[in-house]
């Protein structure tokens, strides 16, 4: 079983292999007078795995919201695989291979696990408006089952999402982000609230992703963040504070004072 539809993604990847997967230039988001993020300039190579750290309210989730188009930035440009997507609605960005998970699970509680994953697969394929029910053996149903297996939820396929445990809902969030042919994924604190076993599973899923898939992970747990990421961006008060390798960040005295010192580590 392949975790992901690698054929399609490597094809599309080849056509844009020059340049960055993600490139932000001077991105600012104002909420009234508050700048949730300010003048963020950031680039991530294809296949790169980046951790974003920062204390509560640093603007990490807001950064994700701007990248996915959940809301438009006040100013600045966002390029996805070389294409300027600054004014694209969220669904157009998703169809170009961007995916995300939400810090607070945003799932369809009234639908089953299978239906949730099926919707995710359908959203990035043709036939979103199809009036015909899928038949047995439909490739999308097969993909749905594979994804559910990939996050170890096969036994819960027919369960209503509202009846899932917290940990299972977090896992389902991941499954939704892996649907279709993702090229770049934003994980917003996927490990928050998980048990040690669930954390280990999560790390296994993240490190097991095909190497052409890059991601940014927001994570307070340094153990998880530093195990899956090859580079780190520190945010503070809506701005980028430091960038570097995990070692550089970990050993940086300013970072230690600001972040690791105040009880988050």
């Amino acid at each position: 079983m392949t975790l992901l539809d690698t054929r399609r993604s490597s094809e599309t990847l080849a056509s844009v292999s020059s340049g960055n997967a993600l490139e932000l230039r001077g991105v600012t988001k104002m909420f009234g007078a508050l700048a949730a993020i300010e003048d963020i300039t950031l680039s991530v190579r294809p296949g790169e795995r980046r951790a974003v750290l920062g204390s509560n309210g640093a603007g990490k989730t807001t950064l994700f919201n701007c990248i996915t188009g959940d809301f438009l930035p006040t100013s600045g440009t966002i390029r996805l695989f070389g294409e300027d997507v600054s004014n694209f609605p969220a669904y157009e960005r998703i169809r170009r291979g961007l995916r995300r998970t939400y810090q607070i699970s945003l799932l369809f509680g009234g639908l089953t696990v299978s239906d949730n994953v099926y919707l995710a697969c359908r959203g990035v394929s043709r036939g979103r408006f199809s009036l015909l029910r899928p038949r047995r053996g439909d490739p999308l149903l097969t993909r749905t089952a594979e994804l559910i297996e990939a996050v170890h939820m096969t036994a819960s396929g027919d369960t209503l999402v509202s009846e899932l445990s917290y940990g299972q809902q977090r896992q389902l969030e991941i499954a939704l982000a892996l649907a279709g042919a993702p090229r770049f994924i934003l994980f917003d604190e996927p490990a928050a609230g998980l048990s040690p076993t669930e954390r280990a599973e999560l790390v296994a899923i993240l490190t097991g992703l095909p190497s052409h898939i890059g991601f940014i992970i927001i994570e307070h747990d340094m153990d998880v963040a530093l195990r899956v990421a090859e580079s780190v961006t520190m945010m503070h008060n809506g701005r980028i504070f430091k960038e570097g390798t995990p070692e550089e960040i970990e050993n940086d005295p300013e970072v230690q004072e600001l972040y690791l010192g105040d009880g988050h580590g």
Binding site: T68, G69, D70, P89, A90, Y91, I94, R95, R100, Y102, L106, L107, F108, G109, G110, L111, D115, Y118, L119, A120, R122, G123, V124, G127, R128, F129, S130, L131, L132, R133, P134, L176, A179, G180
Partner: peptide, 23 residues
């Protein structure tokens, strides 16, 4: 159907539907 399911998804959680690729 896929359309009907997506419509119910839109009813319950339009933001998530957009983040799954639905217009």
């Amino acid at each position: 159907s896929p359309f009907g399911l997506a419509l119910q998804g839109v009813r319950d959680n339009p933001r998530r539907m957009a983040a799954l690729g639905f217009n």
